[in-house]
């Protein structure tokens, strides 16, 4: 049976520390200014600002990256087959080598800014590549989270899941009813982003 990889993010646990963002950057050797995963503050107008009026405040964080939709519109429209959904595990891949920079995928993605279009020649903080992801970064191509496909291939979890200090992220195969993700989804309140767009994301948020 084919797999259906999903990621669960527990918003009750997440403290918005951004360790995932930095680990992603290291693992995938991302250029300066490029983030494949970010943490959005759900609150006031600005990072780490709560919503409401003192003292009735609330503050939450939303880690945001590619949602790896089952009905991925991006895979549907990519002229260069750079974006495609892998049938065997549901990961939506983005191959910067094939990308022609037309940005059709960005147009049709309901989740703004989970993809990065590097306008200029990528610049790096370091003189040597970090991490293990061998894919190159080129100017004027689209990049995004790949669920760390290169790590999945050797049986590891994505980097962001591995490093989370509060273990807010869980990763696994939803088709396996014994998996931790299936168990958690069966027992915890959860929701998905923009379900009304019908793309069936693979990222679930536990609340």
């Amino acid at each position: 049976m084919s797999k259906r990889y999903v990621m669960l993010i527990d918003l009750q646990q997440c403290t918005g520390c951004n360790t995932c963002s930095v680990a992603c950057k290291q693992e995938n050797n991302l250029p300066e200014g490029v983030w494949w995963t970010r943490v959005v503050t759900i609150g006031g107008n600005g990072d780490d600002l709560p919503a409401g009026h003192y003292p009735n405040l609330r503050l939450d964080y939303l880690p945001l990256a590619c949602q790896h939709c089952a009905q991925a519109p991006c895979a549907e429209v990519c002229p260069a087959t750079a974006t495609s959904r892998r049938e065997d595990d549901g990961v939506v891949m983005q191959d910067p080598g094939l990308c022609i920079g037309c940005r059709s995928c960005m147009m049709v993605c309901p989740f703004t800014s989970v993809r990065v279009f590097a306008d200029e020649q990528p610049r790096f903080a370091l003189l040597f590549p970090t991490g293990d992801n061998p894919s190159a970064h080129r100017a004027r191509t689209v990049e995004k989270c790949t669920f760390c496909a290169h790590r999945l291939a050797r049986g590891d979890n994505p980097s962001c899941v591995d490093v989370c200090p509060v273990q807010a992220r869980t990763f696994g195969d939803l088709n396996d009813s014994a998996s931790q993700v299936a168990q958690l989804l069966a027992t915890r309140l959860h929701f998905q982003l923009l379900t009304e767009k019908g793309t069936e994301p693979s990222v679930y948020y536990l609340i």
Partner: peptide, 22 residues
């Protein structure tokens, strides 16, 4: 903006509708 002004609910049709306008 074609992204925010399409009534399609099927994600694939919605994608097509956006790219049609683009």
């Amino acid at each position: 903006d074609p992204r925010t002004h399409t009534n399609e609910t099927n994600p694939k049709h919605r994608a097509c509708s956006i790219l049609h306008q683009v």
